[in-house]
Design a protein around this nucleic acid. Structure first.
Length: 845
DNA sequence: CTACCAGTCCTTTTT
DNA sequence: GGACTGGTAG
């Protein structure tokens, strides 16, 4: 990161001058541009000669042999195993620069895909620093951004309205809730969140409702909901995140000409963080690659920490096999961490089975040992951290070079509290993002209704905000009418009568008026107009704590202005250049090689409006989630959020059994291995100094929990550790309390596939003394609660689990808080679940 | 229809 | 400990 910043600063260009406008009447227009905006067709941006780009030989000379080999690989599929801190992004970007500058491919032949907007932006920035060329011709973006781009260009083939809008997670959940209400579905038996999960899961497997096999009534209902949900989305002209990918995949698989066009176009496909791809993303890549494209996949199986959201590390092995990869290159030279830190990471991760195999090395010396601290309480742990941070600051380290990492967000509170007490500025990652704030979402909902009145999610959101006397009952009636006429709620308004009808009518007229009045306005003017006319500004002016919200609404105008100012509307915009020959009625895609017919029917007037572009930008790029960026502040974040970042000093906190590794990970297939990878990611964030801390007791969910230090300590090289507190033998400290052994849940003993040799044990027999506390030890109060929840399950019973879906109990054992059930899940296979943890619901069939 | 209180549920998360 | 949801009183 820091390296990137330096490079960017070195090659930073002055602000790019505006492009010249074409003469009036030029029959060329950019898709996504406002009718009045400049066309970009064949106008190269003025090249700024005042800054020098490094020459290609210089760029290559800066690479180590492995990096060099990767960058200059021949035109064939390749898999790059890039360890943490091994210069992965540099290899990716230099590869692109090398391909282009050696004339092997034109920028138009490049497609590079990432997971986050941040990564995509960084790639673009680095490329611009390396090459004086226009990056517009390349397709660089996130999976979702690129799919959006393609769907916008071919919305007709994809059977979408031109102004289709994108549901974010919250929108999707509310759409499902609305649907379930309309269909009178019991939300106890079918929690909306799990219905959403089911739908997204299916889509990420590439399955439409007809293709999901439903063997029983429970699953049949879910499939039914999935089908109704898809129909609802189609009627409303909206797509969710998974739909963007699936629809794009289907578009390519159904349309031979489009498929041929894009397969011929993209000669080189580069994939970042390949280990995080899911099945659908892999299928999409494969489809796009066809038989000719050279796919350059960069990933690290040891940093795969997103299996819980569908990432499939197996894609790496599949890729190697299916693409007949001849070039597998390992980047093992680490440029980030000192020796003891790296040794710790290597030793820990060696405990995982089924790795592709990789060992990081460094030229830096051993450096300082890894410091380990045991605290009595979470407060004491926080105090220790703050003291160390203070000392580091006194030694001249910047606050922003220090990070406190934790497994779960709940842990940040104590640390924040202590930092506040010490007067140390800090920054917590992972809060609400800009476009997710309620006032911003309200404003966006009005904008969405202007663009697409059928968007019921937006309609429901603001029809009574600010309050207009339209309550739940009126809306229920309206929804019924809409269902009856199979139309949107907005379209159903004229059918309503009475008092509710007149309020609704007034709302309808408000939206219509906004649509008409904003037609001639620019995007920022439109936003400005809408936040006033909707009554949002007035509403927040009267609200006590409304000042921040007003500020955010103002900021939304600025965001709109920035958006239209950005060349080509940024990464998520549809960037296909649609042009029309004079007097012709056909739209063409302009390629480096000339003009090609892409959509024979799309008239030029069909270019996307800035508003639609801004709305998809808002959904796809929810914005910064870090408070007061730019300040020199201590960084607080979850380990997941820390992936890809680096800091001089890192504190990994809460290293306790049950917390990290998290107890729930025992429920998941290969859960412990993923926790270990998470620990690996955490360790490799540190450059010079690493602290590991754990506590004997910790307040969690309002109750004190007594924890045992994490098993990960036993998986680290002792010679690299420096215990700041005496290292106690596990269990020794607890000798006096061994009567509680029965409550120590051996919750990892069952995780199949792990190395643990006691995997199959756990009968009634007593556990060995040193095993008794491998689990956490709940307080009596907690234990009572568990005991009280006596199972009530029986073997053969059908049950439902929010994460794993439906299954049948195949075995039961233990009692009270120790009770466990073996469940055979239809979709997820056999699992042992601790009944005190898993929320199993009985299903009557 | 709204406002307020009590009961519930608590990993990780990008798009 | 706290955010969110649902129910009930006004």
């Amino acid at each position: 990161m820091a390296e990137a910043a330096r490079e960017m600063a070195l090659f930073d260009r002055p602000h790019r001058p505006h492009r010249p406008r074409l003469a009036a009447g030029t029959p060329v227009r950019e898709s996504g541009a406002a009718p009045s905006s400049a066309a970009t067709y064949n106008v190269q941006p003025p090249c700024d000669r005042s800054t020098k780009s490094p020459s290609m030989p210089d760029l290559l000379a800066n690479l180590n042999p492995e990096q060099h080999a990767a960058v200059t690989l021949p035109d064939e599929p390749a898999l790059i195993l890039a360890g943490a801190g091994s210069g992965k992004t540099r290899v990716l970007t230099t590869r692109i620069a090398w391909l282009i500058q050696t004339g092997q491919v034109s920028p138009n032949g490049i497609l590079a895909v990432t997971f986050t907007n941040k990564a995509a932006k960084e790639m673009v920035a680095r490329l611009q620093a390396m090459m004086p060329i226009n990056t517009r011709g390349m397709w660089i973006g996130t999976f979702h951004g690129l799919c959006n781009r393609m769907l916008r260009a071919h919305y007709r083939d994809a059977a979408l309205p031109q102004t289709f809008q994108i549901l974010d997670m919250a929108d999707q959940l509310s759409a499902v809730k609305r649907l379930m209400k309309a269909l009178n579905v019991d939300d106890e038996k079918y929690p909306p969140k799990s219905v959403v999960n089911f739908i997204n899961n299916a889509k990420e497997q590439g399955l439409r409702p007809q293709q999901v096999e439903a063997t029983d009534s429970f699953n049949r209902k879910l499939v039914e909901l999935y089908e109704a949900y898809d129909a609802q989305c189609q009627r409303e002209g909206v797509v969710d995140f998974a739909e963007l990918l699936l629809r794009c995949y289907e578009l390519l698989s159904m349309s031979a000409p489009l498929r041929a066009h894009y397969q011929a176009r993209f000669r080189h496909i580069l994939v970042d963080e390949f280990q995080d791809t899911n099945r659908l993303q892999y299928a999409w890549l494969k489809m796009l690659a066809g038989t000719q494209a050279a796919v350059f996949a960069v990933g690290d199986d040891d940093q795969s920490i997103y299996a819980f959201r569908g990432a499939n590390v197996g894609n790496m092995a599949d890729f190697e096999r299916e693409f007949r990869v001849q070039h597998l290159i390992k980047l093992e030279q680490n440029y980030r961490s000192h020796g003891h830190i790296l040794d710790s990471a290597n030793t820990l991760i060696a405990n995982n089975a089924r790795r592709l195999g990789k060992n990081l090395r460094t030229d830096a010396g051993h450096g300082e040992p890894v410091r380990v601290y045991e605290a009595a309480t979470d407060t004491q742990e926080a105090n220790f951290i703050v003291e160390e941070i203070r000392a580091l600051i006194n030694q001249g380290h910047a606050r922003s070079e220090m990070a406190v990492l934790y497994r779960s967000n709940a842990q940040s509170r104590v640390i924040e509290h202590t930092l506040v007490g010490a007067g140390l500025p800090y920054r917590v990652y992972g809060g609400l993002r800009f476009f997710e704030r309620q006032e911003v979402k309200h404003a966006l909902a009005y904008l969405r209704l202007i663009d697409n009145p059928n968007d019921d999610t937006a309609f429901v959101r603001v029809v009574n905000f600010p309050t207009r006397g339209i309550g739940a009952r009126s809306l229920e009636q309206l929804a019924d009418v809409a269902r009856l006429h199979n139309c949107s709620m907005a379209a159903a308004v004229p059918y309503t009568t009475g008092k509710a009808g007149s309020s609704l009518g007034a709302f309808s007229r408000l939206i219509d008026r906004m649509r008409a009045e904003t037609l001639p306005l620019s995007l920022p003017e439109t936003v400005d107009y809408v936040i006033r006319e909707s009554g949002l500004v007035a509403h927040y002016e009267t609200e006590r704590e409304g000042e921040d919200r007003l500020e955010n609404l103002q900021e939304l105008i600025n965001a709109a202005a920035a958006f239209v100012g950005e060349e080509g509307y940024g990464l998520n915009a549809p960037a296909r250049v649609i042009a029309m020959a004079p007097n012709a009625s056909r739209a063409l895609e302009i390629d480096a090689d000339g003009l090609q017919v892409v959509d024979a029917d799309a008239p030029v007037a069909d270019s996307m409006t800035p508003l639609a572009g801004f709305l998809s930008h808002a959904s796809l790029e929810a914005g910064d989630n870090q408070a007061q960026a730019g300040q020199d502040a201590v960084q607080l974040m979850t380990i997941h959020a820390a992936k890809g970042l680096e800091f001089t000093a890192v504190f990994i906190t809460g290293l306790e059994e049950g917390l990290f590794p998290h107890e729930n990970s025992a429920l998941e297939q290969d859960g412990l291995e993923e926790e270990r990878r998470l620990m690996y990611v955490a360790i490799t964030r540190a450059k010079e100094r690493l602290y590991l801390s754990f506590t004997q007791s910790r307040m969690l969910h309002g109750q004190t929990r007594y924890n045992v230090r994490s098993r990960f300590f036993d998986e680290l090289p002792p010679e690299s550790l420096k215990w700041l507190t005496p290292k106690t033998e596990p269990g020794a400290r607890w000798g006096g309390r061994s009567d509680n052994a029965g409550w120590g849940r051996d919750w990892f003993g069952r995780s199949g596939g792990e190395r643990s040799d006691d995997g199959g044990r756990g009968e009634s027999g007593r556990r060995g003394a040193d095993e008794a506390y491998t689990g956490n030890t709940p307080l009596p109060a907690y234990a009572d609660k568990q005991r009280a929840a006596d199972t009530g399950f029986k073997v053969g019973q059908a049950v439902f689990h929010t994460k794993f879906g439906e299954g049948t109990i195949t075995a039961l054992e233990g009692t009270g808080g120790d009770a466990r059930a073996q469940v055979n899940f239809r979709r997820n296979g056999q699992k042992w679940l601790a009944l005190s943890i898993a929320k199993l619901q009985p299903i009557e069939d």
